[in-house]
Nucleic acid binder design. Structure first.
Lengths: 333, 333
DNA sequence: TTCTTTAATGAAAACGTTTACATTTGTGAT
DNA sequence: ATCACAAATGTAAACGTTTTCATTAAAGAA
């Protein structure tokens, strides 16, 4: 592969001129420009980003630290974040942890070695933000920032959103409402998880409703855990008339499980989701759910991160975007 | 940030020893090892990957060139590919093109500048493989390699898979079968698209069936296009008894559209999918579909690519993995 | 022509590593 | 004590850029 010296030699100019050809061509004489242009074409030269990165001590990459990208909500958020990154000259480096601390640690080590200029955490573990703070590495938490933290973060108000959705169920006439909560890992609490349960409980309390303990079902945000929750529900002597699910995927699994047992949704039991992933509207029945502003979440988080990376002034580093309820057919009186 | 010189100075050794501390610690005396160890800890030193990359002229990244990652099939494949990459010391750099040629070109330029050591193309455009061949850049096509090409590729036999699924519909007693084909872009043909249509037609011919031209429906692999196809289907005077869909997402949308019009699936009309994405089994009704070996596809493609990157001998660079049919409830006699 | 100013170009340092090679130190044998 | 040999360590070049600063060339003014 030809390097800048080869081009300079062929064009009979210095390497500085070749460098300028790419960065500040207006500084070159037409003569030099032409010669370099020809040499570049002849040698099929492309500047080596590795060398540039070393010199500028910038990789141009942003690492996205995430447990799992197969959930459409996550992949949609990442897509939007990637768009923003591209728009500002950065690329997204995947850091998929599969809920594994050791894997996470490996990525953290990579970040320290400057493989990325900063990172976006879409999970709830402590280690990454601890590292970000200690090492002063540009960091933004997307979706899962604990309340007490002062680190940059972007998310919706999950408590309020869960409360609103539960209130909707109550307003539809439900009194016996179960909650299918999620949990990513046994090791650490996830704000998304606790907040949604909190909002659910707040709504019940506000309306003077109490919940039977066995109606607090435990899933893991997967459709399979929704099916399992249906099994539990079906085995109960007294069943709720509605189930508030902490995400769409569990709601979809739950509906699947209920239907397999011959129950009708929403006639026999209402089910609400959370996230409004793309397929929510195509489900049978279409899912009543909480819509998160996916595009804004991804965009805002990435722009915030890049502002931090580039040392731009950041006015507000903890963004709380607004949710909306989407009423479809999976819930009714 | 401390660099290798700082560590060497503090530990009173040469930078070579510090370098060896990380790469070949067994070469060091216990004495030197201890001093360096202490210095590294004190200075919180982490080797700079940018410098190492430049020297070794390797980025340790693999770019995944893909139109869209929000389809679960794609994100699942990428997840598996990423696992394989991690296992071999590489990271995945996202190159999401959104079906945009200009964006694709930008990524290609990045690859040429050595931001990645090679790339995995999950789309059908010509430009990337042309570049790979001309510039001798490690390349593997995953899912979308045209037949005549000799470039490394990994995919299933889409013609056979589509034929098998269509045959299944025929075996279930269907004679009036429509096809909902996909299309990613008007600009270029996608092998996946043409192959699946080809397989569909082969099965019809083999069984002496002819298809009404209006039953060849055109979608774009999105659920929305499935809904649209349902609309078209419903407006026809004569309707098919089954629809072979080129992917699960369109099948899901199609079913949604049919149900909205009061039709029952599969009683009134059977619908088959393709890919067996994770939610296919949770759909209502659960989708009869073609299962692709997602994990193997991702793994094999990434390992093949890295073998090429590392100059390892490659025995077979065009892998055709096997599919299976998954019969669930969206089809019946 | 000579001087001044601006435009164009070049020389060289710097980024932080790895590694081939040279050198020093250590060990055991004589 | 001397030597041979291995083990440990150090020196310095190299990777391919960007950029500062100095220098040269060109252009305009006197």
């Amino acid at each position: 592969m030809a390097n800048i010296n080869d081009v300079a030699r062929l064009a009979d100019v210095s390497i500085a001129s070749v460098s300028r050809y790419f960065s500040k061509p207006e500084l070159l004489s037409k003569r030099a420009y032409g010669r370099i242009s020809a040499a570049v074409a002849e040698l099929n030269y492309h500047p080596n980003a590795l060398a540039r990165n070393l010199l500028k001590s910038r990789s141009g990459n942003v690492m996205v630290l995430v447990n799992d990208i197969t959930n459409p909500f996550i992949s949609q958020v990442i897509t939007e974040a990637d768009k923003a990154a591209q728009a500002r000259g950065y690329s997204v480096l995947l850091g998929i942890t599969h809920h594994c601390a050791a894997t996470e640690e490996k990525y953290i080590e990579q970040i320290r070695s400057k493989v990325a200029d900063g990172f976006l955490q879409l999970s709830a573990t402590q280690r990454p933000r601890q590292m970000a703070r200690e090492q002063c590495i540009p960091y933004v938490n997307l979706l899962e920032c604990p309340h007490e933290h002062d680190l940059p973060s972007v998310q919706i108000d999950n408590v309020a959103a869960a409360r609103d959705m539960t209130q909707l169920l109550i307003d539809q006439g439900h009194r016996d409402i179960a909650c299918l909560k999620g949990q990513f890992s046994d090791d650490y609490p996830s704000p998304v998880t606790t907040d949604r349960v909190e909002g659910f409980c707040q709504a019940l309390n506000k309306n003077g409703l109490t919940m039977r303990p066995e109606w607090m079902l435990q899933g893991d945000y997967s459709p399979a855990s929704g099916v399992e929750a249906a099994r539990q529900l079906l085995s109960m002597s007294r069943r709720p008339s509605a189930v508030f699910c902490a995400n769409d995927y569990m709601a979809i699994g739950l509906i699947r499980g209920l239907k397999d047992a011959g129950l009708r949704v929403p006639q026999d039991i209402s089910v609400s989701g959370f996230d409004d992933v793309d397929i929510a509207r195509y489900n049978n029945p279409p899912l009543t759910t909480v819509s998160q502003p996916i595009d804004q979440l991804g965009r805002a988080a990435m722009h915030l991160l890049i502002d931090i990376i580039e040392g731009l002034p950041v006015t507000n580093n903890t963004l709380r975007l607004s949710h909306t309820l989407v009423v479809r057919d999976s819930t009714q009186n």
